[in-house]
Simulated scan of single mutants.
Amino acid sequence: MAGGAQLSVTDLRRAARHPVDYPVIGEHRERGDMGLHIVNVSAHGFMINSSPDLQRGDRVTIRLPAIGRIEAHVIWTMDERAGFQFERIIRFEDFVKMIDQMQPNPKLRRRR
């Protein structure tokens, strides 16, 4: 049996991304807890800039403000960066609350 998620992903990279500087603990089924640093986020997923040897298809569970625990799958990796897709799309109202807590500087938030 092959490891990792079998993903059929629509290209969602055009979704509005919000720059953040947000450290989280990712829970990996085989590797345990790992520190991740989220540098941008959208309603569909997020990007980290310090990939701890993750591979496409790996799953991690993270805890985000206003959202709580959510699972995400690695969609791509490049050098030290990795892009993740959430297991579900985050509702707009919850996304706004999350961004307000993750990016407290209103000058850095995108217009809504």
Rank of each mutant, 00 (worst) to 15 (best):
R112M: 10
V74K: 02
D58A: 10
Q55E: 15
D33F: 10
G68R: 00
M1L: 10
G57L: 00
L36G: 10
D94E: 12
N49W: 02
P52C: 10
L64I: 09
A16R: 15
I75P: 03
H73Q: 11
G83R: 07
M1P: 04
R14T: 12
A15S: 14
R112I: 07
D94I: 00
R31I: 01
F86Y: 14
A82D: 02
M1T: 06
M102W: 02
W76M: 08
M98A: 02
H37P: 05
E93H: 12
H18G: 11
V74Q: 01
P19N: 15
D21H: 13
N40T: 08
D58Y: 11
D33A: 14
L108K: 08
V41W: 11
M78Y: 08
I25P: 05
D11E: 14
I62L: 02
L54I: 04
R109Q: 05
G57K: 02
H28P: 12
V41H: 13
E71H: 04
G26W: 04
E87H: 13
R56A: 14
L64G: 11
R111W: 05
Y22H: 14
T77H: 05
S42D: 03
T77D: 11
Q101R: 12
M98Y: 09
Q85C: 07
R13C: 14
I89T: 14
E93W: 11
A5R: 05
D94N: 13
S51Y: 03
V9S: 02
V24A: 00
M47P: 00
A5D: 09
I62T: 04
D79A: 15
A82H: 10
R59G: 08
R110W: 09
M78N: 09
A16W: 12
L108R: 00
V60N: 02
R91Q: 11
S51F: 08
Y22N: 13
A5T: 00
S51L: 09
G45R: 10
P104K: 01
I38W: 02
N49Q: 01
L36A: 12
A43T: 05
F84R: 04
V60L: 09
R88K: 15
D21F: 14
G3K: 08
F84G: 01
S50A: 11
K97P: 11
D58W: 03
E93I: 08
M102T: 01
D33V: 03
D21K: 12
G68V: 00
I75E: 07
R31A: 07
V96G: 06
R81P: 04
V41Y: 05
Y22C: 05
I48G: 00
S50N: 06
S50T: 02
R91L: 13
R31N: 09
S51V: 08
T61R: 09
R17Q: 15
I38R: 10
M78S: 03
D94C: 06
K107P: 07
T77K: 04
R63E: 00
I99S: 01
D53R: 11
D21C: 15
